[in-house]
Design a protein around this nucleic acid. Structure first.
Lengths: 343, 343
DNA sequence: GTGAAAGCGCTAACAC
DNA sequence: GTGTTAGCGCTTTCAC
């Protein structure tokens, strides 16, 4: 019984096709400099043998790789899961492999993950998720990314600025404005905002929209109860519970993401407070489940999977002379969780 | 101005530390055969220089890599997102990089993705998500995986059998039994099942539990309306709409996953059918949002993130002489969507 | 258009 | 315990 190699090498394909390894390489990588007939033959042989190139050897020799890294806060969070879905979709289409890593919203872990991806020599890095208002928090990340880009790496970010890279920017401020306008238009005058850390740029941006809406309506913004808690369903529960306990007299709860809104809905229901009759609730993001809640959630739709695709699309482009931006639209989706106060 | 290399090589570290490249390699990979003092010195130098090994060179030379592939049907689906979260968590702890790929529930794409991962020389492959009842559907996948394992690759699957690999098995049958028992115990006698493709093993397994419960209660199982549709929220809506249109006289809808149950809830609400007063609804999986719906969803909890961690844990173990199995427990979670019929 | 050969950066025998 | 060296499988000049 002959000893067989575990996997075939380019060498094997070349021999079988009766060409040199260089020609085989050129044929398979679609490079120029081979006659069409030879190239076709080599490809046929490779296909027949079921040859697949060793990516490590390829990346080592070429110095680049067909892989991209995606950095998210937490893949279990629907917001990021949907973004990842878009990235994976386009990545598969482009024949790219996608590495995903978690940061848990910790700037230090974020930097570590970026360094790791750089060490992997991924061809591009996509960073999803809110940045930090405090520049110091992302100084290291920015530096690492800058060095990576200088060495030819491509970077695209989703929903954050000031990272010196191509960016897909959701209309956080406009969305915040739209949803606050909606509430104010309904007649609400005492609105509580429940939100994740004010140190996140996403939060800050959305907040600006909320403030604008108040100012445009001649309403005081500074006395608005703003309750900060983790940017999760559980945080929404905590913030809402706190709101109720502190006895704020409000007619609407404007949550700065859907997760928190869902938590708010849950607490209000368990306390027997009718939504939207006694208190209106709005969210932000329009995660898949938002329309199926009871009451269905009024929110701002962000095209998350699209944003993921767009970010990867930007990263696949050649590097421009200066960072590009793509704006991802928003859409106010009015459902059953908001209504006229005291209706 | 001196021309600098873009990235440092092991060679640079070795020179700076005044040792040979072999010693440097041994020191950094924690191999034996170096004196502690030298090893420590080399590591210090590497850290000072900010050296990170080129993973491609390393994998090429060593023939293995510190990376794992995770194959899911769709990362945007909370079930898989939560599993992925578990895998990523343990992966980060172990210093592994995780590649995720989509199959879109298409057996052909699944095989392609597996081949791709094999070509990447990942150290382990984790396959999450239902298999197919029809062996022909997964013959190719099985073959590819077998070859990969024979070549030293590690494989762990979640929620599927017959793939000749270590497996984490959720208690699908017991869970199906539990939730059907619950409904029957409540007094329901005419239960509709809404489900994803009956060709999925997950569905088949859960169905067995439902049948057992009926038989144990002396109830006919064969006349149960079983409505098949995509295993998604939308599929749940379709199936429920069909159920209503066909005029089946049932008091409960047993959905074989939460997504479909959420779709069912949505349709029933829009038709003004009270849950659970007129129709009870149950789900399966206990995705994060299940408890926050209105009415909150009675379902079977599966520890998804845990399952992800366990699968990776199995894959990290040395290969055993025969496939190992780990059972992931289930827990019936009774909430507000189920009640006594006609109450 | 095609082939020979020099690396890419690292690991693992094998010498010493 | 440490150094030398031969590859790992591929891409890419450079000759022809």
């Amino acid at each position: 019984m002959a000893k067989e190699r575990a996997t075939l090498r380019l060498q094997d394909v070349a021999e079988e096709a009766g060409v040199s390894i260089a020609t085989a390489s050129r044929s398979l990588s679609g490079a120029t400099g081979v006659s069409d007939s030879v190239a076709a033959h080599v490809r046929a042989v490779a296909a027949r043998l079921g040859y697949v190139a060793n990516v490590h050897a390829r990346s080592l020799a070429a110095g680049t790789s067909r892989s991209v890294g995606l950095v998210v806060h937490e893949i279990g969070d629907p917001y990021f899961a949907e973004i990842a879905s878009g990235v994976l979709r386009l990545g598969a289409e482009e024949g790219l492999t996608v590495q995903i890593c978690h940061t848990g919203r910790d700037p230090r872990r974020e930097v570590e993950q970026i360094r790791e991806l750089v060490a992997q020599r991924v061809g591009a890095i996509i960073i999803a998720g809110s940045g930090f208002v405090d520049p110091a928090q992302q100084w290291d990340a920015k530096t690492a990314l800058q060095a990576y880009q200088a060495a030819g790496g491509r970077v695209a970010v989703i929903g954050r600025h000031h990272l010196g890279a191509d960016a897909v920017l959701p209309e956080n401020t406009k969305g915040g404005r739209a949803v606050a306008d909606h509430l104010i238009g309904l007649g609400h005058r005492r609105i509580a905002v429940i939100t994740g850390s004010l140190g996140l740029t996403t939060v800050a941006d959305r907040m600006v929209g909320v403030r604008e809406a108040h100012e445009a309506a001649g309403l005081a913004f500074d006395h608005l109860p703003v309750l900060e808690a983790p940017f999760t369903r559980d945080g929404g529960k905590q913030a809402t519970a706190r709101l109720l306990e502190e006895g704020h007299d409000v007619t609407a709860v404007l949550a700065l993401n859907d997760d928190m809104a869902i938590g708010a809905l849950s607490v209000l229901r368990s306390r027997g407070i009718a939504v939207p009759e006694q208190i209106s609730v709005s969210g932000f993001d329009d995660v898949a489940v938002a329309g199926d809640l009871a009451p269905s959630l009024t929110t701002v739709r962000l095209p998350m999977a699209d944003m993921g695709e767009q970010a990867l699309g930007l990263a696949l482009l050649d590097r421009g002379s200066r960072p590009r931006r793509r704006t991802a639209g928003h859409e106010l989706v009015i459902r059953d969780s908001t209504g006229v106060p005291g209706a």
